[in-house]
């Protein structure tokens, strides 16, 4: 019983870590690729055009 709950806890942590990393990746994509503040847009402009993000 104890072993099972430990394993479940370990898997749960693993999934949380994976989700956390994926979320950081998605946040980076949103900030660099989609956010429309003027400064960010200008700084990321050429990259957005060159990687196929909708830009203007």
């Amino acid at each position: 019983m104890k072993t099972i709950s430990t394993t479940n806890a370990a898997s749960a942590t693993g999934l949380m870590s994976i989700l956390f990393v994926a979320l950081i990746g998605a946040t980076v994509l949103f900030v660099a690729g989609h956010a429309q503040s003027a400064t960010l847009h200008d700084a990321a402009h050429d990259m957005r055009h060159a990687t196929g993000f909708p830009c203007h």
Partner: peptide, 11 residues
Amino acid sequence: IYAGYGLILVA
């Protein structure tokens, strides 16, 4: 942007 892609890929 590729660091963001990289994070999603390793996830």
